[in-house]
């Protein structure tokens, strides 16, 4: 589904991603862990199509197509979803209106007719229940005045409504208390399916207590330096990132 080969990328002339490789198949959950400054957020921004980054070499194939050639909105319409680390507050735009516009533009892209009002309301109700989002939040302006936890929950709510194929969670656990973490993780678990893949980018292991990954990768200095089964996350949690750095230094 997603194949990243030897990706080099940066911003303002500074290389941040330095030969990154990743293969994600349908239905898999990959966790990408790494210390601050290893390139985690750069990676998620590049996948979503943020225009500030320069790709110097390498390729990203999504469902066999060149992802880097696709516009931001076409990536979303093809099923790529980024749950933002810092969701943007947009005063004056209601969550509901925004989601309806998004759904209808995605449907139009696929040659489908706009969603019926009653079907839309049903969908919203159903997904709100799924991620335990209060009705009032859905009617408010996008993220405006939301607490940190509410913003993250709203990201997962949008993900549930838009039903993407590739879900990228960028530090979704940061700023969450333990209850919100559980709710968010439950939401994600309910969305897991044979067709849907997840790339979970995180600094800490704690989200992975609730969402069990198929693979764990360690991102360091712009590339994956170690991959392993879910137990690798526990090891990182116990030992921190220093032993990885030491291992790398020894190899060099």
């Amino acid at each position: 589904m997603l194949s990243i080969k030897n990706l080099h990328a940066g911003i303002d002339g500074k290389e941040i991603i330095k030969g990154f490789n990743l293969e994600v198949k349908a239905g898999e959950v990959h966790a990408i862990m790494g210390p601050n400054g290893s390139g985690k957020s750069t990676l998620s921004n590049i996948l979503a199509g943020k225009e500030d980054y320069e790709i110097t070499s390498g390729e990203i194939k999504y469902k066999g197509k060149d992802l880097l050639e696709m516009s931001i909105e076409d990536r979303a319409r093809e099923g790529v979803f980024l749950a933002f680390q810092y969701p943007i507050e947009i005063p004056g735009v209601s969550n509901i209106n925004f989601l309806k516009t998004a759904i209808n533009e995605i449907r139009a892209y696929k040659g489908q007719t706009p969603i019926e009002a009653k079907d839309f309301l049903k969908l919203i109700k159903e997904k709100q229940a799924l991620i335990e989002l209060q009705g009032t939040l859905a009617n408010r302006s996008v993220n405006e005045g939301f607490s940190g936890g509410e913003k993250k929950r709203n990201e997962i709510f949008q993900m549930a409504v838009l039903e993407p194929i590739l879900c990228i969670l960028d530090e979704t656990d940061s700023g969450l208390d333990i209850d919100a973490l559980r709710v968010v993780a439950n939401g994600v678990n309910k969305l897991r399916s044979k067709e849907r893949s997840f790339v979970i980018i995180t600094h800490y292991q704690r989200l992975l207590d609730y969402i069990t990954p198929d693979f764990v990768h360690v991102l360091y200095d712009g590339k994956i330096v170690k991959s392993g089964p879910k137990e690798l996350a526990l090891e990182l949690e116990k030992k921190g990132y220093d032993w990885i750095k030491e291992e790398l230094a020894a190899v060099k």
Binding site: G49, I72, E73, I90
Partner: peptide
Amino acid sequence: DSLFYLRARGLSEESARRLLLVAFAND
């Protein structure tokens, strides 16, 4: 950033702009 956020959910640049401008007028 708002424009990017809306486009990342599938809105075209044009409709994202329109939504943001209407929101600006909404006050």
